[in-house]
């Protein structure tokens, strides 16, 4: 996973009227599509700052002026929507799951790529087999297992089964296979153990791939729905997605509060996307080869 490859300009052709017209049409189409794609976000933040009568009025209010920030208090104080608990649970689950699974996957990737163990390939094969199993389909068997551990209505019941990503281990293995061995040899001469080499040489040089896969993992974890829904059944274990979903399916009366909740739920990820998009794009390209 290298840095973003520099993009070459398309081949230069004489600029004639036809080509100019083509460019104008292309930009027109792009601008119209861009507006269409941004409408849902616009609606979330507009409705989050409007009043109920403004939202349900027959004439469209374009901008929330003045913005009604009291909607924030309405959602945070609604007893049927434990938003703060949800945010806290989501933050804990996404952080622990992301850091834990990245650590385990990068360690396994290093071991598979760099430690000359006799059965390494057989172990790797046994791990790859699990990629054949469609993720969400295992929710019934996994629920059965987690239930038998007595982990229903616990945060670790939501977190632990998501810590073991074969696919990330596979990507780390690829990355470490291409890692120059000179640095590693230098470390060995200095008397570093396998752990020392991993900790002091490979990890500091994997910041790019760790950030890319970590951000993708965080997004997936924060937005997850099915697994947290079936494991965290009591409201104390709801994630922010479950809080919103419950609120959404139970009552649809308090629109400003609901949209404010949606805005709060989506804002952390929007910020990540705005400030770290190149890493996410690299991560998507890497995971996209999973065919």
């Amino acid at each position: 996973m290298s840095a973003v490859t520099p993009r070459l300009p398309p081949p230069r052709r004489p600029l004639n009227t036809g080509r100019l017209l083509g460019q104008v049409l292309t930009y027109t189409a792009l601008v119209l599509l861009a507006i269409l794609f941004l409408i849902p976000y616009y609606i979330i933040f507009r409705n989050a700052l409007l009043s109920q009568p403004q939202i349900t009025a027959f004439t469209w209010t374009w901008l929330p002026i003045p913005p009604r920030f009291e909607n924030l208090r309405a959602i945070l104080e609604d007893p049927t929507a434990p938003m703060l608990t949800g945010l806290r649970n989501s933050a804990i689950i996404a952080t622990v799951q992301t850091s834990g699974s990245i650590l385990l996957a990068s360690m396994a990737g290093y071991g598979l790529a760099r430690i000359p163990y006799r059965w390494a390939n057989q172990v790797f094969f046994l791990m790859l087999v699990t990629l054949m199993i469609p993720g969400a389909v295992t929710f019934v068997p996994s629920y059965v297992l987690v239930a038998s551990f007595g982990w229903i209505n616990t945060l670790h019941g939501i977190i632990v089964p998501g810590l073991f990503s074969t696919f990330n281990a596979f990507l780390f293995r690829q990355f470490y296979l291409e890692f120059p061995s000179e640095l590693e040899d230098a470390g060995r001469v200095d008397g570093l153990s396998y752990w020392g080499i991993y900790r002091h040489i490979l990890l500091p040089n994997s910041v790019g791939i760790i950030t890319a896969l970590g951000l993708l993992g965080f997004i997936g974890s924060w937005n997850a729905f099915l697994w947290p829904l079936i494991i965290g059944q009591r409201s104390a274990y709801w994630t922010v997605q479950i809080v919103l979903s419950t609120f959404l399916t139970a009552q649809t009366i308090n629109l400003p509060a609901l949209f404010m909740g949606a805005a709060i739920a989506v804002l952390p990820l929007l910020l990540i996307f705005i400030f770290a998009q190149s890493y996410i794009v690299e991560g998507v390209k890497a995971t996209g080869i999973k065919g």
Binding site: L30, I43, N47, Q241, L244, V266, L270
Partner: peptide, 25 residues
């Protein structure tokens, strides 16, 4: 810019998008 605009819906969860589709659009 345009790549970002078309890519940014990926940040949204199905729950939040469902909310917008069901309760507004």
């Amino acid at each position: 810019f345009f790549r970002s605009v078309f890519f940014i819906p990926t940040a949204c969860s199905y729950v939040v998008a469902s909310l917008v589709w069901k309760l507004n659009i």
